[in-house]
Design a protein around this nucleic acid. Structure first.
Length: 289
DNA sequence: AACGAATGGGAAT
DNA sequence: TTCCCCTTCGTTC
């Protein structure tokens, strides 16, 4: 499910399956903004992620612009072999049979087909709209050319709570509700702390940890923010903890949606922060005031 | 069957 | 701030 790691992994997989191929683009649901036909039958060049946004490029003479997809909370891309829907896609099949497809977009090429359902955005956008989108996104920890100083400066200039800033895609692109609670926990930081009360080192630590966690998320295909047992990979910053291995369900996060803190067993507190639930361990993340 | 949540975000008020 | 959209899945009646 979709925080930045999901979209970057998806972009990688789409490139692997479809880059360089002529792709049949359709919208079984019929709700593709602008119409799928305008990019149907062109060669797919690349797929890239910027934060939680997925951008897909087609080779001219396809129209100028890119296919813009945002999964939102419910969106999902599913891969099928040889165009044959897999058995796990029962509901999708049932819907298609009944004539009420939930498939917003289908990308089909030799070997593989990908189907998108439930996205917030699926539209072909021109270069100007694309620029507008890029302009309202902050640095993405998963992009190698991202500038951490931008993140540090904007956080330290704001009186808003760090937990709200971490969800603001114009401050940092790609972090969602799980990572924000887990990042604050790992720094033993109350997410209600105003950004301007944090030291440059603390904010930089948040950035570096976001890079580490999101990278692991891409590799594993799921969010894991807890150190694997026996993992001693603390070289480098020393303070940095690197989560490298997958862990069993129930041991992958420390506080998010948990009743008790995985670290110390204290009862986890939950409160609204930026219109989403934030989770803290009141023992390990004591409030400042 | 009906309801509520869910790793999100934009538009309207 | 509040409302609304998107879909799936688990729980409750």
């Amino acid at each position: 499910m979709p925080e930045g790691h999901t979209i970057h992994r998806l972009a990688r997989d789409l490139r692997r399956d479809l880059a360089g191929q002529v792709v049949a683009v359709t919208s079984p649901q019929g709700r593709f903004s602008g119409g799928a036909s305008q990019i149907d039958g062109f060669r797919l060049l690349s797929a890239e992620a910027y934060g939680k946004h997925l951008l897909i490029d087609f080779e001219p003479p396809a129209p100028d612009g890119v296919l813009h997809i945002h999964l939102g909370l419910f969106g999902r891309f599913t891969r099928f072999a040889d165009g044959a829907p897999s058995r796990s896609e029962k509901s999708s099949i049932a819907n298609e049979v009944s004539g009420a497809s939930s498939v917003r977009l289908r990308l089909a090429a030799a070997g593989w087909a990908w189907q998108l359902s439930g996205p917030t955005v699926c539209a072909f956008v021109n270069d100007q709209e694309l620029r507008k989108l890029r302009d309202r996104l902050g640095p993405d920890p998963l992009r190698s050319n991202a500038d951490p100083a931008l993140f540090v400066a904007s956080v330290r200039a704001s009186r808003r709570a760090i937990g709200a800033l971490l969800l603001d895609q114009s401050i940092v692109a790609g972090i969602g509700n799980v990572y924000r609670s887990e990042l604050c926990y790992r720094l033993r930081l109350d997410p209600r702390t105003p950004g301007n009360e944090l030291s440059a080192d603390e904010v930089r630590w948040l950035w570096d940890d976001a890079v580490a966690l999101l990278t692991i998320g891409v590799r594993l295909g799921r969010i894991v923010t807890v150190d694997a047992v026996g993992d001693r990979s603390t070289k480098g910053s020393g303070r940095r903890r690197n989560t490298v291995a997958d862990l069993p369900a129930g041991k992958r996060v420390s506080v998010y949606r948990r009743d008790h803190c995985l670290g110390c067993g204290a009862e986890v507190e939950r409160f609204d922060l930026g219109n989403r639930w934030a989770y803290v361990c009141p023992v390990e993340q004591p409030s400042q005031s």
